[in-house]
Design a protein around this nucleic acid. Sequence first.
DNA 1: AACAACGGCAACCGCTATTGA
DNA 2: TTCAATAGCGGTTGCCGTTGT
Length: 278
Amino acid sequence: MGRKPCCDKMGLKKGPWTAEEDEILVNYINMNGGHGSWRSLPKLAGLLRCGKSCRLRWTNYLRPDIKRGSFTLEEEKLIIQLHGILGNRWAAIASQLPGRTDNEIKNLWNTHLKKRLICMGLDPQTHQPLSSSCNPDGKAHAASTSTRHMAQWESARLEAEARLSREPYLFNNSNKTDSDYFLRMWNSEVGQSFRDVHKSDNKGGCQSPISLGSLSATTTTDLASNPASIVKEDLVWGGSKKIASDSSSSSELEEDSCDTSLQLLLDFPINNDMSFLE
DNA sequence: AACAACGGCAACCGCTATTGA
DNA sequence: TTCAATAGCGGTTGCCGTTGT
């Protein structure tokens, strides 16, 4: 059994949405407290569109929490940073920018940010310099080794947040809002100290070609080459294993959290690789 | 003024992942 | 366990407004 015929083969309308169609769709979703099944929505709402088209129109344009208007500088910086970590995972990037859609971010990237990186001499896919002529003495490598850990932290945090939103049932045994172990670790005093250290360390040091201002985690030229497997190992080690065997009290968990945090921080190669900051 | 080239953005296409019977 | 239905995602297309010649 093949794919179902698309809307154009079923006499359904395609192309730009009219104001009337928008109104019908919004009214239907508001009246029914949600969209329900996208497949059946057009028929129930009286729209000559396929469900997929309705879903896209709603999520990309009609949703009440959509933030219209141009992107701020901070948003653009964040997108560049997240792209360095996540690559073309637009939905994951969009989840970190409230009110912005993956489509909008994707368009911004393809029309503006990609060109901007190229103008800055960076490969928009790898975020590495287009010519690898800089730092022949190897300091760039030292920098990337160190900052890779920042990318690992941030990437793991994003993964954890995504998992938290997908699997709330895993964490409903406590009143804590940050039930995810890794998230609590990241948000703990230890995590804050970790971020503070690197924020101050990076002030006068060798920063990424992309200056990211006040953002806590810094994108580096090496982010794109950062293997996700390393991050995931850290995540399992610090998070999922604890969740699976979670029979301890909250105080014990906090102790474990500190121990694990310290282990992660000790793993950060400050003594070995931070010389480039001097 | 007319036309072509370009750029931005909304929407579509097709693939993958997830869900439920 | 299998498989169809559905949802979600990223890549691509095409329309339309703007700019350049």
